[in-house]
C-alpha cells in the first residue's frame, strides 16, 4: 500500500507527530457535530468511552455537545478486557473501570468512543460487553484515528483522521487528561505489537 505522506513533524524519539493539539480539538468538534447531525440532536444519546483513552475523548465530545446543544449527554466507560478474544494469549490483564450512566442504555443510541481503530477486535469485544449491559436502540462508533488493517467486518461511523499506516508502525495517542499533552504520533518499529 502506498502510504500518503501525512503532515509529519519529526521529533527527537524517532516518532513523527501527525496530529497536534489543535488538530485533535478540531477533529473532536467536527465529530461532535456529526454525531448530533446524524442523530438529529442529543436526545437518547449515551457516550461510552473504551478505557483508557476512549474515556477522556468521550468526555470532551460531551462537553462540545453541551456547548452546542445545551444538553448534557450521559458519559460512561465500558471495559472490554474480559470479552477480548486474546485474553488467554497473555497474562491476566488488569481490569479497567466500567461505569454505565445511571439512565442505563436500554433503548438509547450508544456511541462507542475509542482512540484508534485498527483490527476491529476491541470493538467486537465492546459489542459483546454491551449486550450484557442492556439493549441499545443503535450502536455507533466514533474514533479519533482509523489506521486501517481491519481483521473483522467493522467500520467507524465518525472518524477524526484516516491515517494510512504500515503494520510495522505504531500509532501513539497522547491526551491531555492522561498524558499531559494532546498529540497523535507514528512510531517506526520492527516488532509487531499489540494486535
Amino acid at each position: 500500500m502506498c502510504a500518503q505522506p501525512a503532515p509529519a513533524t519529526p521529533t527527537t524519539d524517532g516518532s513523527r507527530t501527525v496530529l497536534d493539539a489543535r488538530d485533535i480539538s478540531r477533529a473532536l468538534t467536527r465529530i461532535s457535530h456529526e454525531i448530533l447531525e446524524r442523530n438529529r440532536g442529543a436526545a437518547d444519546l449515551v457516550l461510552l468511552g473504551i478505557p483508557s483513552r476512549g474515556v477522556p475523548l468521550a468526555q470532551r465530545i460531551a462537553e462540545r455537545m453541551a456547548s452546542v446543544e445545551g444538553v448534557h449527554v450521559p458519559v460512561g466507560s465500558l471495559d472490554v478486557t474480559m470479552y477480548r478474544d486474546d485474553l488467554r494469549l497473555k497474562p491476566a490483564r488488569t481490569l479497567m473501570p466500567t461505569d454505565i450512566p445511571s439512565g442505563g442504555i436500554d433503548g438509547k443510541t450508544v456511541v462507542l468512543v475509542d482512540d484508534v481503530l485498527y483490527s476491529g477486535r476491541t470493538i467486537r469485544a465492546a459489542l459483546d460487553a454491551l449486550t450484557e449491559v442492556g439493549r441499545p436502540k443503535a450502536v455507533q462508533l466514533a474514533v479519533l484515528v482509523d489506521r486501517g488493517h481491519r481483521e473483522l467486518p467493522i467500520r467507524a461511523d465518525f472518524v477524526g483522521k484516516n491515517l494510512p499506516t504500515s503494520l510495522a508502525e505504531r500509532v501513539r495517542v497522547s491526551l491531555e487528561a492522561l498524558d499531559g499533552v494532546d498529540s497523535v504520533a507514528i512510531l517506526e518499529t520492527i516488532k509487531e505489537t499489540g494486535r
Partner: peptide, 12 residues
C-alpha cells in the same frame, strides 16, 4: 512478574 499490560499504541 507479568509484562506491562498496556503500552502506548497497544490498539487493536
Amino acid at each position: 512478574l507479568a509484562e506491562p499490560v498496556e503500552t502506548p499504541g497497544d490498539h487493536s
